[in-house]
């Protein structure tokens, strides 16, 4: 059984107030040296079969259709090693 990871992030030009709030909180907690934080979503898709090219294409379709809203979000698909 293979696991495919789909990472979904807001597009760079879309304001991410949650990431900004985290970035502002870090110095208060004693963490220094952070220039910026962006928050996103990670989906772990367990396949019944191998993660071959056909299966990956299917996962890309899932991301395009449901997991990401491509108006505001980008996604990447990779096999978990």
């Amino acid at each position: 059984m293979a696991r495919v990871i789909v990472d979904v992030m807001l597009k760079p030009e879309i304001l991410d107030p949650q990431g900004q709030a985290i970035a502002r909180a870090l110095p208060r907690l004693g963490f220094s040296g952070v220039a910026a934080v962006r928050q996103g979503k990670r989906f772990e898709v367990e396949l019944e079969g191998p993660a071959d090219e056909a299966a990956l294409e299917e996962v890309r379709k899932m991301a395009e259709t449901l997991l990401a809203n491509t108006v505001i979000e980008d996604y990447t698909v990779r096999v978990d090693q």
Partner: peptide, 17 residues
Amino acid sequence: LCEAHLLPGALTRNASL
């Protein structure tokens, strides 16, 4: 309506959170 692409754009988290 935005998710269904009947209207353009999207609605995201309020800037103030």
